[in-house]
Design a binder for these strands. Structure first.
Length: 431
RNA sequence: GCCGCGGUAGUAUAGCCCGGCCUAGUAUGCGGGCCUGUCGAGCCCGUGACCCGGGUUCAAAUCCCGGCCGCGGCGCCA
C-alpha cells in the first residue's frame, strides 16, 4: 500500500464525521458480539475503535484472522457515534494486515494481567507498548527536551566526550575493559576530565551520554550502563552550578506537569512543583540532625540510603541539596574548602535518592598534582588532563546527573530500569 | 558479596504452615460455540503448570538437604 496512515488516533474525533481516513496501529483488543465486531486499534497516542458489521464478510474474516498485537492499516470513514468511546469510531472499507502477531503473547499488553519485573524485561518490547511504558518514556523525553532548552537558554553548548578512554578518570569505580588495537582501554565511567577541558575552551558545556561502571551494585538505582547528564561551567563555583541545576530541575518538573498530566495520572504519580530556591543543608548539619535523632553516624561517614530516608523525613523536604561534603570522600578534582576538611561539593537528593552531584573543581595544577598523590594516584597517568592546566584553565564547576534517577523522581517508578529501554546490569545483557 | 522472601499453565495467582479429600482451583490468554453497541463485554465448552537433583514417607506441589534462578533490603559504588 502506498500510504500507511493519514491520521493518528489523537487527530480523530466526532468533528471528522464522514471523513475518509487511513489509520494504523496494533490490535489492542477484539470484541466479538456476533453481529457487531469491535477492533480496538492502538497507535502511539491512544486507542480507537473500528466497527465491523456481520454483513461485511471480508472484514469479518480479517477480524477472525487478526491476533492481539498484529499491525494493520484500516481504510475507512470516521463516524460520530455517542455509543463509541470518544464519541467516534472508524467504519472500515478495507483492512491491510502488515504483520500477524504470534499467539499467545508472552505478556499481556492491554494491562489486564500484570507481569513480574523480570518477565517484563525479558519481553521488553511488548512491555514498552503498555500504557505505563509509553507514558514513562514520553515523560523522560519531555525532561530531556526541557534540560536541553534550559541549558541552551543559559548559554551552554552541547558537546561529546570520548567514550573509550585510556585510564580510570577517578579511580574508585570499576571499569569495563575494551580491546583497543592491542592497547589497554576502557569504557568511560564519566565524562568528567574531558568536560572540564572543554569548559576550558567553551566556558559552558553539557553532555547527555552513556557512562559505564562495572560495579557489584545490585539495587533498583544502579545500572552498568546509564545516561549521565553532565555540565561544566567556567568562571563560577559550586553555588553557581547549583543554581543552574535547580533551574533545570524546576523547568523539567514544570514541563512534565504541563505536558504530561495524562501520563502522570496514568502512572498514579503526584509530581510536586519545585519551588526555588531548593533547600541547602550542610553535610555536617545533616549528620548532626541524624545523630540527634538517634541514628548511628559519625562525621566523615558517607550517608547511606537509610540515612537519607531518615534525613528527608527529619527536614521535611522532598528535594534538597546536601552541601560541603568531607573532602576525603570526594575525588581529586574537587575543590577543598579553606578549612581543609570539607569541600565545595554537593549532592542533589530527591527523598532518599541521589540524583545529581557536583562541585567546584580545582583549576590550579599544583593542587591537582598534590591531591592525586594524596590519593595514591600517579599524576603521570593524568598528563593528558593536567597539561592543559598550564595554559589558562579558568575556575570552574559542574555536576553530573543520572537521567534515569531523575526519571524516577518524575514518574514515581520504583526502579531506574523502568526509565531504561534495555537496561544493562549484572544480570541483564539481553535484550 | 551478605540477609530475607520466593520459584505452580504463555502471563498473574490459590493451594504449602498442618503431606492423602489435588483427577492442582481462579483470572487472563489461546481454540470452539452463542449473542447487533461492546468499552476490563457477557455466557457455555475445551486447552495448558507444581524450577532441577537428592532425601524422608505407605504417600510429597506441600516436609528436609543441595543447586540454579528471581525479587526486596543492605553492602559495594565520587
Amino acid at each position: 500500500m502506498s500510504r500507511y496512515r493519514t491520521h493518528l488516533s489523537s487527530e480523530l474525533g466526532p468533528h471528522l464525521d464522514g471523513t475518509k481516513v487511513i489509520v494504523a496501529g496494533w490490535i489492542h483488543a477484539k470484541r466479538d458480539l456476533g453481529g457487531k465486531k469491535f477492533l480496538l486499534l492502538r497507535d502511539k497516542d491512544g486507542v480507537m475503535q473500528i466497527v465491523i458489521d456481520r454483513e461485511q464478510k471480508d472484514l469479518a474474516e480479517a477480524f477472525y484472522t487478526l491476533s492481539l498485537e498484529s499491525t494493520i492499516s484500516v481504510v475507512g470513514r470516521v463516524r460520530a457515534d455517542s455509543r463509541a468511546p470518544g464519541g467516534f469510531e472508524v467504519v472500515p472499507s478495507s483492512i491491510v494486515i502488515h504483520s500477524l502477531a504470534k499467539a499467545p503473547l508472552p505478556i499481556d499488553v492491554s494491562g489486564k494481567v500484570p507481569a513480574d519485573i523480570d518477565t517484563r524485561f525479558r519481553e521488553r518490547v511488548l512491555d514498552l507498548r503498555r500504557d505505563e511504558g509509553r507514558a514513562t518514556f514520553k515523560i523522560l523525553s519531555i525532561a530531556l527536551r526541557a534540560i536541553r532548552e534550559e541549558l541552551y537558554n543559559m548559554g551552554f553548548i552541547e558537546i561529546f566526550t570520548p567514550k573509550i578512554v585510556a585510564a580510570a578518570t577517578e579511580g574508585g569505580a570499576a571499569l569495563f575493559p575494551v580491546a583497543y588495537f592491542g592497547r589497554e582501554a576502557y569504557l568511560a565511567q564519566s565524562p568528567q576530565l574531558y568536560k572540564e577541558l572543554l569548559a576550558g575552551a567553551f566556558e559552558r558545556v553539557f553532555e547527555i551520554a552513556p557512562a559505564w561502571r562495572a560495579e557489584e551494585s545490585d539495587t533498583p538505582y544502579h545500572l552498568s550502563e546509564f545516561i549521565s547528564v553532565d555540565i561544566e561551567m567556567a568562571f563560577t563555583n559550586y553555588e553557581g552550578v547549583m543554581n543552574v541545576l535547580e533551574r533545570v530541575v524546576a523547568r523539567v518538573v514544570k514541563d512534565v506537569r504541563e505536558l504530561a498530566g495524562r501520563e502522570l495520572k496514568l502512572l498514579n504519580h503526584e509530581l510536586q512543583e519545585v519551588k526555588l530556591p531548593i533547600k541547602r543543608i550542610k553535610y555536617s548539619d545533616a549528620v548532626r540532625v541524624l545523630a540527634e535523632s538517634g541514628e548511628k553516624i559519625e562525621l566523615g561517614e558517607d550517608l547511606s540510603t537509610p540515612h537519607l530516608k531518615k534525613l528527608s523525613e527529619l527536614i521535611e523536604e522532598d528535594v534538597y541539596f546536601i552541601v560541603d561534603w568531607p573532602d576525603k570522600a570526594r575525588p581529586f578534582y574537587t575543590m577543598p574548602k579553606e578549612d581543609g576538611v570539607f569541600s565545595e561539593s554537593f549532592d542533589f537528593v530527591w527523598n532518599y535518592l541521589e540524583i545529581a552531584s557536583g562541585s567546584t573543581r580545582v583549576h590550579r595544577k599544583e593542587l591537582l598534582v598534590k591531591r592525586l598523590e594524596e590519593r595514591g594516584l600517579n599524576p603521570e597517568n593524568f598528563s593528558f588532563f593536567l597539561k592543559w592546566f598550564d595554559y589558562g584553565m579558568p575556575p570552574h564547576a559542574g555536576w553530573g546527573m543520572g537521567l534515569a534517577r531523575l526519571g524516577v523522581m518524575l514518574t514515581g517508578a520504583k526502579n531506574v530500569r523502568e526509565l531504561t529501554a534495555f537496561p544493562r546490569d549484572k544480570k541483564r545483557l539481553v535484550p
